[in-house]
Design a protein around this nucleic acid. Structure first.
Lengths: 226, 226
DNA sequence: GCCAGAATAACGGTATACCGTTAACTTCGG
DNA sequence: CCGAAGTTAACGGTATACCGTTATTCTGGC
């Protein structure tokens, strides 16, 4: 055993490709092809696919196959509804339970995001969210929001992100509310921070053509060489 | 292929056993033993375990093994925090989006729960929640709450359920708020309905001895016959 | 040229078998 | 009798191989 199971490597690799939109919604995932490319057998690959399916990043039609999960405007609306509720909860709990060290770490995230640009800032902002959820001290919430944030990051890769300046300002306000322990205000700001990206992301989703999983997983024969 | 994959059967069977507390927290799940008992190979069984792990019902230590997920008092607190947020959201959305047929189905659930007793009532009450979430029209919410409600049902099997009369009354009030489309009140009642069971369930969880997954997945040798 | 039926490729589902690691049991020297 | 080294059972990780279903392509008759 080389430390981490090959299954975890496959899972991480495919997840990255899906989140970063290298694989678009509806993209067919053929087990034998992927196994060959990732240089492993189908067994660990299939286990990775099961995990991705549980995270909602792929859809498996029993006996047919697996595709990258399609995204409809309704899916996006649903995602924002749930995010609002959970980010609000996370912000409130963080305000109520944050320790001094936690507050310091969160402040660092705010400042780092302000100082950098581009992809680095996207990561810094993601760190802020991770830190905030960690501060909430709720492992289940961290888990659920982690899965959801993967979907959100995918959306942003598919549609483009919101104005960075605005988001940084919102993070700063959120930090302030948490720092002074104002749970109600933190929750409100957390909800609004989510709501901000809502309309434009749903609108962007209108453009995507729907994918029928049944149809997308049809057996297709490769064109013959000679 | 006999219609549904054997993996799904294994997943459903194990899930039932865990939720109904036939397998207690910390119970070791040995792949070869389960595969033999369920009369399938380890391949579909392992895939079922991956799904259960993603649902948080089992914990897998890489290279060591899998146990039924332990439950700490903090886990229970976390669960109720998240449930409050999501049941509140579900109730609000249901009130805002419910159709006449949906309202009718929900009312049926309320009445059926009032008319039956015992295990049948527990099922009827679960149906009410399922129907309510369905009414919310949010597939992601239904998915997340579905996973969470499995954990909650497990807790109730481990600790015992709350007073049935009270819960039916709360369901009825919730139904009324949804029927008249009062989202704010529905959300409030939904949250309170969750909060009701909170303290006593957390208290009950204090009794459970913690399980260290690392330690619980140690390779053990079976006692020899002769 | 067109359609029915046969041949076959594609691909998911699953059994079998082997490997490596870990820990329990055994054995042997002191 | 005890502790160290050797032996083997237990068990998760994974490769290989086969099966069955589905759909494409081929083929012969009209």
């Amino acid at each position: 055993m080389s430390g981490t199971p090959r299954r975890d490597h496959a899972h991480a690799t495919l997840k990255r490709r899906i989140v970063e939109a290298a694989y678009l919604p509806g993209h067919r995932l053929v087990e034998r092809d992927l196994a060959e490319e990732l240089d492993l057998s189908r067994i660990p690959l299939r286990e990775a696919l099961r995990q991705l399916a549980a995270e909602g990043l792929v859809v498996t039609v029993p006996g047919k196959g697996t595709i990258v999960a399609p995204v409809t405007p309704d899916d996006v609306r649903d995602l924002f509804d749930v995010r609002e509720a959970l980010e609000g909860l996370a912000a409130r709990l963080a305000a109520e339970r944050a320790t001094d060290e936690g507050r310091a770490r969160l402040r660092e995230c705010v400042e780092r995001a302000r100082d950098v640009r581009g992809a680095e800032q996207i990561n810094a902002r993601a760190d802020f969210h991770d830190e905030l959820v960690a501060l909430s001290g709720n492992a289940l919430l961290a888990d659920v929001l982690g899965g959801i944030s993967a979907r959100v990051r995918r959306l942003f890769h598919l549609t483009g992100d919101r104005d960075a300046e605005v988001q940084c300002a919102e993070h700063e306000a959120l930090y302030e509310a948490i720092a002074v322990g104002d749970g109600v205000r933190a929750a409100e700001l957390g909800v609004r921070h989510v709501t901000g990206g809502r309309a434009e992301t749903i609108a962007a989703a209108e453009a995507w053509t729907g994918v029928d999983p049944e149809e997308a997983t049809r057996t297709r024969r490769r064109r013959r060489a000679g």
